[in-house]
């Protein structure tokens, strides 16, 4: 096993708070996979029809950048920290990677080398 290393991924603070947990990658074709409790949902973009998946997540990371997108509104309503506009998030993260979301500063820290 390789030594753990940290990668800081900058984004925009979208919903306040801090959370950490395992990465759960979501796209339209994988919507029906069970969402692990306490995971950090990582996706290119979050649509309103995917909102039920947020019921058990601890944090949200999206690649698309606007502060006024669905992910921001939903994260605030669900009381979940969120960072949006994180370029390359879905490519950098693997399912189950440890990740920390800082919704106050707009930063994501990916801990690799599990």
């Amino acid at each position: 096993m390789s030594e753990p290393s940290e990668i800081r991924l900058p984004g925009r603070a979208a919903a306040p708070g801090k959370a950490s947990g395992p990465v759960h990658l979501v796209n339209e074709a994988s919507l029906h996979q069970p969402v692990p409790t306490g995971c950090i949902l990582v996706t290119r973009i979050l649509h309103p029809h995917q909102a039920p998946l947020l019921a058990r997540v601890a944090g949200i990371v999206t690649e698309e950048g606007s502060l006024l997108q669905h992910a921001t509104a939903l994260a605030r309503e669900f009381g979940v920290p969120a960072v949006v506009g994180v370029r390359g998030a879905t490519a950098q993260c693997r399912e189950g990677d440890r990740i920390e979301v800082d919704g106050d500063l707009g930063v994501v820290i990916l801990v690799s080398g599990r």
Binding site: P48, H49, Q50, A51, P52, L54, A55, L67, L68, H70, T72, A73, L74, R76, E77, F78
Partner: peptide
């Protein structure tokens, strides 16, 4: 803060699903 909708369609959908 921006005037985000409260009880947005997405959160209403989630409650209805539950």
């Amino acid at each position: 803060d921006p005037p985000f909708p409260t009880w947005s369609p997405g959160s209403e959908l989630t409650r209805a699903g539950a």
